[in-house]
């Protein structure tokens, strides 16, 4: 499919080049061959883990992706943590106190969180916090520190400052989602007999919420969030572009604009694999969290 969109050679050579020059470039990249030959060559390479070289960087596409991956992973992980840490307590609060003013504010906020476009909010954040107030850096990844052999901007103050805005921006939609899931789960589980029974047994509310309510609502939330984590990594494009975050999203956007086919293909393969792995993790988590899935059969 990707072969039908534009001609990458037009993007690669100077428009004033001679026709011979253009032909040479085309031949170098193997783009003069018929489509099925190109596809066969791609398949041969893919089996050995070689997804082709980037037209622009001239380096293996997969290596480029893996190089950029940590930055995105860092951003997505932070966003996910923010979503859980902020969303879960708010959602449980809303579920436990359906009629309070706090709940109305939280639910109103979650509607805003779902409906405000990410790019607009990102731009607003930059204007307010960086340009007007000057508290946070405008863009980029900042300084990186090394801890236990892992390089990450999480380990330096400058890096964290750079991370706050993009991570919050990316997390906003997820926070709203976690709030809604947690509230629905709380309302459902609180109506169950076993919660009533825990109260009848004389357990304090804190214990009921953290040991009986929470594990039960976490099962569906984790299932959804694991998949959402995949979308965070795969589609952080908008946020990364706005904040000039050197991650996957930025790489892919540039590759698409420049018709750098190998990178786009490698990226798609990478995302598919990522989702497969995440689905596997969800299944395993499910069994860990819910004993009913783990052990079948009954002790008589």
């Amino acid at each position: 499919m990707i072969n039908f969109v534009g001609d990458p050679v037009d993007m690669l050579v100077n428009p004033e080049s001679l026709p011979e020059e253009i032909d040479r470039v085309r031949k170098d990249f193997g783009l003069d061959q018929p489509v099925h030959v190109q596809y066969w060559k791609f398949l041969q390479g893919a089996v050995t883990g070689n997804l082709g070289n980037s037209f622009i960087f001239g380096r293996p596409a997969l290596a480029l992706i893996i190089e950029r991956f940590p930055a995105t992973l860092e951003l997505a992980t932070c966003a996910l943590i923010i979503a859980i840490v902020v969303g879960l307590p708010l959602g449980i609060f809303a579920g436990l106190n359906p009629n309070s003013i706090g709940t109305r504010i939280i639910m109103g906020g979650s509607v805003l969180g779902i409906s405000i476009p990410t790019f607009w909010l990102g731009l607003m954040m930059i204007i307010v916090f960086s340009v007007i107030l000057g508290w946070l850096p405008v863009s980029g990844r900042g300084e990186m520190g090394t801890f236990l052999g892992i390089q990450s901007s999480l380990f330096t103050l400058d890096g964290l400052l750079h991370l706050i805005m993009p991570a919050t921006n990316l997390a906003l939609f997820k926070i709203a989602m976690v709030i809604r899931l947690a509230r629905a789960g709380t309302e459902e589980v609180m109506g169950f007999d076993f919660i009533k029974f825990t109260r009848a047994r004389g357990l304090p509310p804190k214990r009921i919420v953290s040991f009986h309510l929470l594990p039960n609502i976490l099962i569906p939330i984790i299932t959804v969030l694991a998949i959402e984590f995949g979308t965070l990594i795969a589609f952080a494009t908008v946020t990364e572009t706005i904040f000039a975050w050197p991650g996957l999203g930025k790489l892919v956007i540039e590759a698409i604009i420049n018709l750098d086919r190998p990178i786009v293909v490698a990226y798609l393969m990478f995302v598919v694999t990522l989702f497969l792995i995440l689905n596997l993790i969800v299944d395993i988590m499910y069994a860990v969290l819910d004993p009913r899935v783990r052990i079948k059969g009954e002790i008589q």
Partner: peptide, 28 residues
Amino acid sequence: DERAMRIVRGSKIGMIFQDPQTSLNPIM
């Protein structure tokens, strides 16, 4: 109030519900 009632529940008055399928926390 709830605090005083909690001391009564469980240690003074116990309760058994109709359906044993739903009155126990399934994942504990």
